[in-house]
Structure formats: C-alpha cells, structure tokens
Design a protein around this nucleic acid. Structure first.
Ligand SMILES: [Mn+2]
Ligand SMILES: [Mn+2]
Ligand SMILES: [Mn+2]
Ligand SMILES: [Mn+2]
Lengths: 226, 226
DNA sequence: ACTCCGATTTAGAGTCGTCTAACCCTAAAT
DNA sequence: ATTTAGGGTTAGACGACTCTAAATCGGAGT
C-alpha cells in the first residue's frame, strides 16, 4: 500500500482524535487539526474509505479500520522515536522536537526506524511521556493517567505525560518544574479551570490556565507502586 | 524563497551535471537523471527560470544562477552531512546511505543540519569522499583527483572519492579493498576501459569495468604531500 | 410534526508535477 | 543550400490536493 504523506497525516490525526473517546471523528475536527477546509477533508475521507483505511458514515464521521490504525501507529511510532532520538542524541530540548519529527516521520525508512530504536534501546515513551507503539504496531495500552484538572487541592500526583506541542508552553513548563516524572502537589483548582501546583523540582508554585492544564496528565503515586 | 522538493531535486541534478564541464546542461540529461520525460523537464525549467534560479536559452540548455547554485549547495550539504551522520552514528554502511539521505535532504531544518554538523565536528567529506559544502555554502574547491581510468600500468595512486551510489557496486568495492584512503597500484588498463589494480587494503587484485572505474577518483600520493 | 442552524457534502475550479502525441529547431551530412 | 536525424518544445490531459460557493442533511427546540 503506497500512501502519500498527506494521507498519512489524516490517518494520524484521526487516530489521535480517537484516543480517549468512542465517538466517531467528525469532518470539522479533522479540518481544524490539519488546517484545511471541510470540503477538503470530505474528499480525502472518500479516498481513505475507498482504500479501506477508515469506516465512514456520511454526515456521521469516521473511525479507523484495523488497517488504518496500523498505518497511524506506524507514523506515531516514527514521530515519537524521532522525538526521543533528537533529545537523546542530538541535544534537542523537548520543546523543540515536535516540528522536526512531524516532517521527518513520513520520510524515514523502516531500516532507519530500526536503527534509531536500537540506538535508544527500544524506548517506550517519548520526551513528552507519550507511549511509543512497539515494532509490531500493537496499540499501546492506554496509560492510566488523567488530566491534572481532575484533581483537588491537597492531592499529590506524578506527571506522566505533557501532551502539548507548543514550544513556548513546553519551555515555560520545564522552567517551572513541570515535566514527566516530577511530583506535584495541587494547591488550587480554580472554578475556571486554572490549576496551581507546587513542583518538587522547582520548589515554587506554578499556575496553569485551563488549556495548558488540560494537557498535563498525571497519576497518583500509589497507582504507580501497586 | 519557498521551493518544492521537486525543484530542489532539479537544481541539485543540474549542479552535479555541471561539475567538471563548462557545457550548458541539456534537457535530456536532466530527464535521464531524474527519470522523467523531457517535456516534464522543459516545463520545470521554465518555472526555475521564472524564479531566477537558472539561465536558460531555449534549445541550448541551462546553467545555474548564483542563487540557483546556492540552493543546490544547500541540498548537497544536507545530503552529504546526512550520509556522514548515518555512517558515523547510526551504523550504516557507506553502500546504504545514499537513498536514505536522498529522501531526508529535503526535510531537515537548518537547526537539524547544524546539530548534525556539530555532532560530526564539521566534516569536509562524506563517506564516499565527496566534499561537503561548508555552512556558508561557498562552492567547495574542485578536488584535484582524476578518474582512475586516466592512469597507466605501474602508477601508484590513492583513492580520493568513489562517486557511485549503487549499493551493490559500493559493497563490491569495499569487499575488494577499494575505498577512500586506500592505495592502489595500477596493474592494467584495458583498451575497453577496464582497470585492474592491487589494493594495499585487500592485497589482492581487483578489476573494475569502465563504468565503475569511471567513478573511482584517485590522486598521485606526491600531489597530496606537496 | 416543523423549523432552523450549524455541520457536511456537492459542484466547480486552480495549482503542481507528471504524461503522451504532435510539432519544431539545430547541427551535421550531403 | 537542402535534407535529415535527434533532441526540445508545445499542446492537451490527468491525478493529487486544495479552495470557495452553493446545496443539503440532521438534530435541537419548539
Ligand atoms: Mn516504520
Ligand atoms: Mn511527543
Ligand atoms: Mn541547510
Ligand atoms: Mn555521497
């Protein structure tokens, strides 16, 4: 199956939008994510349906077929391995890797993928804490983390994943001690969603507006130990 | 200036065909190299001319403008740095790097280029002995090597560059002790161009049919020492 | 059941890079 | 000066991906 970069991007986006819901993915969601108009999405969805990569019900959105999911996992694996390699071996900061990986993910060979995975010793998460699909492209199990928004004043949690790609936000977070692996004590969750917490890294408090906090996924330490 | 991958490839090919001649580059040469038809080349040449990247005289071929040459050098730098990086840091063999670099060269950022160059300590040749344009994209000086075909029985020479990209040929050459840096003693140059030589690496003789010998560029050791 | 709004699809068009078929130019040979 | 062979260009088309404008669907609220 010979797929264009663009088709790969559509499948990747559908995969990512599908994580954490059972809802079908709607035309407009894809259009937003890829920065194209909805008629453009509609016509690409027809093509992907013809190729058996998605299930489509007109006016009701799409889901990936198994084959489509495998392609998406392939691209996600490339992306996250590249992010890991760039930070580990080329001295990139975690805030800088996304765009580079987003271009290269479509252009590396299976051989390159394998050598990178070897050089990293088959990592299972990328620098943002997101799981890297294994070489067999089985869907990684859903990490049992929740958005930090779900917690309350007084909770002690560990950052598992920061699912944001904006370099400015990521730099800010790192500067304020919010990275995968650090412990946070929740100080306040404001009614409009802003979370204030103290990091054991920076030892000062940091406030995260809702749209940022939303992407900071954490788990209770207990859940890790059990 | 926003250029497509395809335009970059045309400029790179024109640059490479231009090395070692003062002739203008002809439509059909480009078509052969890129595996497209000549009308396709003609229409792309019109576009490149409009953009000021080539000088074109209808029916008489093209040359790169300074701007076009800079773009070509940029891509060649990417290509050769990638080849060097893949062999040095990802355990690729020199016979395997070309195709990978040929795809990635269009998709790496300037930042990536710089980090790779740093990791390699600003190398000046790639694994095939070809010069890597510097970061300022000044045209590298033409290496003073000649095809091994130009020499005669009894000459002692050093391999400077193996300007071939075919993995099978490169593996064969490495197996028979023909790589940049090795010394060769020319044993025979047949009338139909085949060169037989003894390598100080393998210590056995190896014969190279003309089309292979043509790409093996060597220099007299004396020229190196002076 | 009906109406209406927002989301989706249909229709039609444009750009890019490619092709084939037909025509044309240049340079070499007569 | 003419012919001719070979390569180059023009013309017209197509697939991939995108857009805007117009038509249509479906669900929410009466
Ligand atoms: Mn892969
Ligand atoms: Mn990531
Ligand atoms: Mn560059
Ligand atoms: Mn090379």
């Amino acid at each position: 199956m010979m797929l264009s970069d663009v088709m790969e991007d559509y499948l990747k986006v559908i995969y990512q939008l599908q994580q954490g819901t059972d809802d079908r993915i709607k035309t407009s969601e894809i259009a937003d994510e890829l920065d194209v108009t909805s008629p453009t999405v509609t016509s690409m969805l027809e093509k992907l349906e013809d190729r058996g990569l998605i299930d489509r019900e007109k006016y009701r959105g799409v889901t990936l077929t198994d084959e489509g999911e495998t392609v998406a996992l392939e691209i996600v694996r490339h992306h996250r391995l590249l992010e890991a390699y760039l930070t580990e071996h080329l001295d990139y900061d975690w805030s800088e890797v996304h765009d580079e990986a987003d271009r290269l993910e479509h252009h590396i060979s299976e051989d390159f993928e394998e050598r990178v995975a070897d050089a990293l010793d088959e990592p299972d998460v990328d620098p943002h804490g997101s799981p890297i699909p294994n070489a067999d492209l089985e869907p990684p199990e859903r990490p049992d983390s929740d958005s930090v928004i779900e917690f309350e004043e007084g909770d002690a949690v560990v950052v598992e994943e920061v699912a944001d790609h904006d370099p400015e936000i990521l730099s800010y977070l790192a500067d304020h001690g919010v990275e995968p692996g650090v412990e946070l004590e929740i100080l306040e969750v404001a009614p409009f969603g802003m979370v204030t917490a103290r990091s054991n890294e920076s030892d000062r408090s940091v406030s995260l507006p809702e749209h940022v906090a939303h992407h900071v996924r954490v788990a209770r330490p207990a859940e890790l130990e059990q």
